[in-house]
Amino acid sequence: MLEGKFEEASLLKKVIESIKDSVKLCNFNCSQSKGITVQAIDDSRVLLIALKIDSGSFQEFRCDRDLVLGLDLESLSKILKQGNNEDYLTIIAEDSPDSLLVVFEDKKKDRISEFSLKLMDIDSDVLTIDDMEHDCSITMPAYEFAKIARDMKTLSESLQIIITKDSVKFNAEGQIGSGSIILKPHTDMEKPDESIKIELNQPVVLTFGAKYLNDIVKATALSSTVTIKLTDKAPALFEYRLPSGYLRYYLAPKFDD
């Protein structure tokens, strides 16, 4: 049996809102040691999502036996919208479940709402992702990266990221013209999450689909910072930290035709 209680429903709501436009169906793997893990790849095989909600993200977590919950995220999203952000949220499943029970508890009122979501058998490709060495890593405010991704998409369907020791440059060239945004590393002592940190083994220039970057920044509400790890001619890793766990996106680059 699985029983996981979140202190606030908002965490799972935000996680599902972050991924449901990229993948519609996915398996939630549940175990006592790892909590909930998900690996899902979008239909175009360009964007991969790796989610880990550790048991530490729950107020209470028990999973007697390893379970796989096949979920339609659009349907789960509909059910999660029934609860308030501040409600306790408990998810419950039997050992061989055909449905997931979702329970909201209002902390102030005596109101408990229960929903049952039908589960599905989902065949999914699982990819092996080895721990990669990266040429460089940038940590920056999540909202700032989101603004760049959204703004630059209006200029071009591709966004180039150029990292050097002294700066990170976002470059877009489109039909109406071109634009670039240059950020330099700095440390904000009072608000550390406002800092921009660059770690560099070697400079990197990579180009990504603006559409996919805009899917990724849907996770902005989850974390105040985003870490972007880039390697020449390889998929990029975008990581949003959860209170205990992470949401990672792996995005395949575009190449000069």
Binding site: I41, D125, A252
Partner: peptide, 14 residues
């Protein structure tokens, strides 16, 4: 101008 690559070219399917 740019061609989108696939993750399958980089990661091995199990």
């Amino acid at each position: 101008k740019y061609k989108q690559s696939s993750l399958l070219a980089f990661f091995n399917a199990k």
